[in-house]
C-alpha cells in the first residue's frame, strides 16, 4: 500500500509532499505526544496527529514516517508546511476525527497486508 492509495481511499487532502506519494506504508501510529512518537513509531508508519507545529515535521523526518495525517480539519502552521515542502514529506489532512480516520486507516492497511 502506498501513500497515494490512502489519499484516494480516504479522500485526504494533500498539503505537501506530492512527489513522495509513492512511499510504501507499512503501518500506522497515532499520538500527539512527540516523545511517544519518537520512541515508538516505526519507519514507514503513517502518523496521525492533531499537532500542527513545525516540530511535527522534525519528528516525521527523523523517524522517516511515510506520511503525516492532520485530523479534524487542522491545517499545518506556515513553517510546518515550509519544512514539509523542503523535505518532501507527505502532509495530509482530513475533516474526520482521529477515531473515525484511524478505524478506516487500520482496516485499509490490514486488508492490504492480510490479502
Amino acid at each position: 500500500m502506498k501513500v497515494k492509495n490512502i489519499v484516494k481511499e480516504l479522500g485526504l487532502s494533500v498539503f505537501c509532499g506530492d512527489e513522495s506519494l509513492d512511499r510504501e506504508v507499512t503501518g500506522g501510529y497515532v499520538s500527539d505526544l512527540l516523545s511517544d512518537v519518537m520512541g515508538n513509531a516505526s519507519e514507514g508508519d503513517v502518523w496521525v496527529t492533531l499537532q500542527t507545529h513545525k516540530n511535527v515535521m522534525a519528528v516525521a523526518s527523523l523517524k522517516e514516517v511515510a506520511a503525516v495525517i492532520l485530523v479534524k480539519g487542522h491545517k499545518p502552521d506556515e513553517d510546518t508546511l515550509a519544512q514539509g515542502i523542503e523535505e518532501e514529506i507527505p502532509l495530509l489532512g482530513t475533516e474526520m476525527e482521529t477515531f473515525e480516520l484511524t478505524g478506516k486507516l487500520y482496516e485499509l492497511i490490514q486488508n492490504q497486508n492480510g490479502g
Binding site: D32, L33, D36, G39, Q51
Partner: peptide, 15 residues
Amino acid sequence: MGFGAGMGLPNMKKN
C-alpha cells in the same frame, strides 16, 4: 506542543 510528557530521558536510556 506535545513535549514534556516525562518520556524524554527514559527514551534516551532505552536507545
